[in-house]
Amino acid sequence: MLEIKCPYCGKRSQNEFSYGGDASVKRPELGKEISDKDWDDFVYLRKNLRGKHSELWHHVAGCRQWFKVLRSTATHEIFKTTKVNE
């Protein structure tokens, strides 16, 4: 079971959190012109890399804050966790 340090609550076991996927995916701005391809890439394409992966987690059974985790997808080692805007 992963141990994740919520930037608001501190270290907690994984079962308090839910996963939110690749944090590098940025939602295009509302109302802004965007090509079909760029939009579809946003919706469907993922880096899916092996190694350091920036990802979102949600402290659902805690403070209910979303935050970012830098974690190795090869070893599951967590390098750091930060608030979303950090």
Binding site: S18, G20, L56, H58, V60, R64, Q65, W66, V84, N85
Partner: peptide, 13 residues
Amino acid sequence: LSHLEYYLQVVWT
């Protein structure tokens, strides 16, 4: 709820 929180906390801060 998670969906709303995601947009408020991550996308439209």
